[in-house]
């Protein structure tokens, strides 16, 4: 129901993990929540992290999801900064 708060866990990869200083973060979001809300909450961690978030894709399980994707309690999302394989 609208108004209650949920917790979402956030797994950081690559440069996001280094900037976060940890693999896992968590954010508290008011419902209804979207990926964009999670990113906005994470952006509070600082300017460098906020700048990186703008370039991150977000995955839920093995799917990349858009900023508008709805989140529910217990979801674990992954922060995927710009990639460089090979």
């Amino acid at each position: 129901m609208a108004g209650s708060r949920i917790e979402v866990r956030v797994q950081c990869f690559g440069p996001a993990r280094r900037l976060a200083g940890d693999e896992w973060l968590s954010v508290q979001l008011g419902e209804p929540a979207t990926v964009a809300d999670a990113l906005a909450a994470l952006a509070q961690r600082g300017d460098d992290f906020a700048a990186l978030l703008k370039q991150c894709a977000v995955a839920l399980g093995d799917e990349i999801v858009r900023r508008t994707y709805p989140l529910k309690a217990g979801d674990e999302i992954a922060l995927l900064p710009p990639v460089a394989g090979g």
């Binding site: 991150c56 894709a57 900064p81």
Partner: peptide, 28 residues
């Protein structure tokens, strides 16, 4: 396009993530 990251460790002891490609469909 694939979520893989490369961190280079230099002989002077420093390191850096290699410049990458944004894979978010709806980033800027």
């Amino acid at each position: 396009r694939v979520p893989i990251w490369k961190e280079e460790f230099y002989t002077d002891g420093s390191s850096a993530f290699v410049t990458g490609c944004c894979i978010a469909e709806d980033a800027a």
